[in-house]
Amino acid sequence: MRNTARWATTLGLTAAAVCAPLAGTALAAPGNAPSALYAPSALVLTVGHGERAADATPERAVTLTCSPGPAGTHPAAAGACAELRGVEGDVTALTARNDVMCTKEYDPVVVTVDGVWQGQRVSYERTFANECVKNAHSWSVFTF
C-alpha cells in the first residue's frame, strides 16, 4: 500500500508540475504565440531514507519547473534549473564535487526525479551512502 501511495503522490505532483505551466499558453494572444511556445521542463524530486525508492517512504517531495522560467516548490529553483541546463537535463551527469568531505557512515538516502525535460521523459533513481554524499552531487538540484 505504501508504494501505491508513493506513486500516486509522485504522479499527481508530476501532472501538476507539467500541466500548470502549459495552462497559461492556451490563453496567450495570437500575436504572442511564438514566445509562449516552449518544450516543457517540469520535474518532481523526492528524497527518502532507504536503499530503494520502492522500499523508502518519501520524506520530502518538491516540484521544479524550468521552462519558461524557474518555478515550483524547490527552495533553490533558479540554481537547480541552471545546473540541469548545464548538463542538458541529464541528471546522471551530476557528479560529486571535490570540495566536500563526507564521513563513511552508511545511512542510505534515495532520490528520485520524474517528469519531463525539454519535452523528453525523465525517470531517475539513485541511492547515496548518506545525506552528505547526496548533497555533494549538486549545488542545488538535490538540496531540498
Rank of each mutant, 00 (worst) to 15 (best):
D107G: 07
N135C: 06
E59I: 09
W139Y: 09
A54Y: 02
V91G: 01
T127C: 09
S123H: 15
L43H: 06
S67N: 12
Y124I: 13
R126A: 05
A28L: 04
V44E: 06
P70M: 07
E59L: 13
T46N: 06
V110W: 08
S41R: 00
R2A: 15
A16D: 07
S138C: 03
N130K: 03
L84W: 03
L94I: 12
A82Q: 08
S41N: 00
T9Y: 01
E131W: 06
C102P: 05
V111P: 00
F144K: 05
E125M: 12
D107M: 11
V100F: 08
M101W: 08
S123R: 15
E51K: 14
E59K: 11
A82P: 00
D107V: 14
V111M: 02
A20P: 00
N32T: 12
T63A: 04
T73H: 04
T25N: 02
W117A: 04
C132E: 12
A53H: 11
G69K: 10
F144E: 00
G50K: 13
G79K: 03
S35I: 11
L45F: 04
E125Q: 15
N135M: 08
V47D: 01
A129W: 00
M1D: 09
G79W: 06
A17E: 05
C81N: 03
V18A: 14
W139D: 11
M1G: 14
K134P: 00
G89W: 07
V87D: 05
G86I: 10
A80W: 01
Y106Q: 07
R60T: 13
G119A: 06
R6L: 07
G89Q: 05
C132V: 12
A23N: 01
V122W: 08
L84S: 02
G50C: 14
R2M: 12
A16N: 09
E125G: 13
M1R: 10
A93Q: 13
M101C: 02
P58E: 10
A53W: 15
A82V: 02
T65V: 15
A78I: 07
T65Q: 09
V44L: 07
P70T: 12
R126S: 01
G48A: 11
E83S: 04
A96N: 05
L64V: 04
T65W: 00
A96S: 14
K104T: 13
S138A: 11
S67M: 12
T127G: 07
N32G: 13
D114N: 15
L11E: 08
A20Y: 09
T143C: 07
V116Y: 02
G48T: 09
Y38K: 05
T63F: 04
W7M: 08
P68D: 07
A23T: 05
L43F: 06
G79F: 03
P68K: 09
P21G: 09
A71M: 03
K134D: 01
